[in-house]
Structure formats: structure tokens, C-alpha cells
């Protein structure tokens, strides 16, 4: 075999590709489901924390800031390892999917809280005062006047952060989740050929390349203009 043939046989082996294609597709959907779970719960929790922080209760806010800092400082894989390998010592075993979901949702929560909160504080004080002077309550002002403006400002950083954290779903393969990378890894060790990895990489590109380009578009479309 020439080098070129060996290269093609290794990375673009049609027989292996056909054999493991269904597995990769299954992994593809699993990655999407995991990503969706992370995005929905992570963003909801982040927004919730930011709203609670707006009440300005000192002790509560210090707690929120600590939790946010904690999940910004810890590598996601360390959190996943802690949940998956550590928690069983407390008699609590969760499967890899749940561990990855919780860990990455917590990370997204932390980052998005920070972004939502920055957005809320960036809305001028006069907006609060104008709304309150017409008799709107605190929560009404937050809901109808402040958050709509804050959310618009947060769209670009939030989009990019969400994409970056969602890519972390590949970490789930470390804790035996058959997502794209998990399925690809399994394929490689069964077939003793790296073609499944090529397919996995291609699957990630199919999934994330449009998202990355979308993020780029969002950045210019929602630039910080008002």
C-alpha cells in the first residue's frame, strides 16, 4: 500500500463507515438531546438567579456570586468527574447522561447569570425610575421594562457562551455516554480503524459549523447599539 492508500483506508474506509454510520447517527441525536437539556435548564437557572439577585438581598447575593464564581472556575470535566466518580461514594449513582447534563447546565447557569446580571445593571437607572413613577411595581418594572432591554443586550455574548458550553457535550463520552464522540470511540476500538472518528468529527461540524456561523451573524446583528 502506498502512503496515500493507507491514509484513505484509515480515515475514509467505506466499509467501516457504512457499518458504524447508524451508531454515529444515534450519537448525533443523543448529542442534540443532551445539548437541548443543558441549554434549557442552564439558561433558565441563570436567568432565575439574575432575577433573584436583582432583589438586592445581601446574603443571598453573596451566595449567588460564590456559586457563579465556583462554576466559572471549575473545569467542566472536573465537575463531571466529581458527579460521576465521586458521588457514588455517598451512595448516589447517576448515569453519565445525567451527570453531564447537571455539570454543563451548572456551568451555563453560572456564565449566563453573569451575563444576564450585567445586562440588567446596564439598563439605565432612569428606566427604573420612570417605570416606578408611573406606579409599576418592582417585578412589573423588571419584567416589562428592564428585562426586555437587558435581554437584547445579552444576546451576542449569551449566544457565543452557549455555543462554547454546548460543545462540552463531547465530554459526556468520558463518562460512558454514547453521544457522537462516545459512539465514534466505541467504533474505533471495535473496528480497529479510525474512520468512525472521522465521521464523528464530520458530525460535529455538521452540527456546530452552522451554529458558529449563526453566532457570528448574531454578533453583528445585535451589536451593542440602541
Amino acid at each position: 500500500m502506498t502512503n496515500w492508500e493507507r491514509f484513505v483506508d484509515s480515515f475514509f474506509n467505506a466499509r467501516v463507515a457504512a457499518e458504524y454510520f447508524p451508531k454515529i447517527v444515534e450519537g448525533f441525536w443523543l448529542t442534540i438531546v443532551l445539548a437541548a437539556c443543558i441549554i434549557v435548564t442552564g439558561l433558565a437557572a441563570g436567568l432565575g438567579l439574575a432575577v433573584i439577585r436583582a432583589f438586592g438581598l445581601r446574603v443571598v447575593n453573596l451566595l449567588i456570586i460564590f456559586v457563579v464564581d465556583l462554576f466559572r472556575a471549575l473545569p467542566p470535566l472536573v465537575i463531571i468527574a466529581l458527579l460521576y466518580f465521586g458521588l457514588p461514594a455517598a451512595g448516589l449513582s447517576m448515569d453519565g447522561f445525567v451527570c453531564a447534563w447537571i455539570a454543563l447546565a451548572a456551568v451555563l447557569m453560572a456564565f449566563s447569570e453573569e451575563i444576564f446580571w450585567a445586562g440588567i445593571t446596564a439598563v439605565p437607572k432612569g428606566q427604573w425610575e420612570a417605570a416606578r413613577s408611573t406606579g409599576l411595581g418592582f417585578l412589573q418594572t423588571l419584567g416589562y421594562v428592564v428585562l426586555p432591554q437587558a435581554l437584547r443586550m445579552t444576546i451576542p455574548p449569551l449566544t457565543n457562551r452557549t455555543i462554547a458550553i454546548t460543545k462540552g457535550t463531547a465530554l459526556a463520552s468520558v463518562v460512558a455516554v454514547p453521544d457522537i464522540l462516545g459512539a465514534a470511540n466505541a467504533g474505533v476500538s471495535f473496528s480497529f480503524n479510525p474512520t468512525p472518528l472521522t465521521m464523528g468529527a464530520a458530525a460535529y461540524l455538521v452540527l456546530f459549523l452552522p451554529v458558529v456561523i449563526f453566532g457570528r451573524w448574531v454578533e453583528t446583528r445585535f451589536a451593542w447599539k440602541r
Binding site: I180, L181, N185, V188, L197, L207, V211
Partner: peptide
């Protein structure tokens, strides 16, 4: 777009 872990495993194991 490529998760870094995918890249790393590709380089190391592929």
C-alpha cells in the same frame, strides 16, 4: 465548531 476533545482524541487515537 469542533469540540476540543474530539480534536484531541483524533490526534491521539486516530
Amino acid at each position: 465548531a469542533l469540540p476540543p476533545l474530539v480534536l484531541l482524541i483524533f490526534l491521539y487515537a486516530g
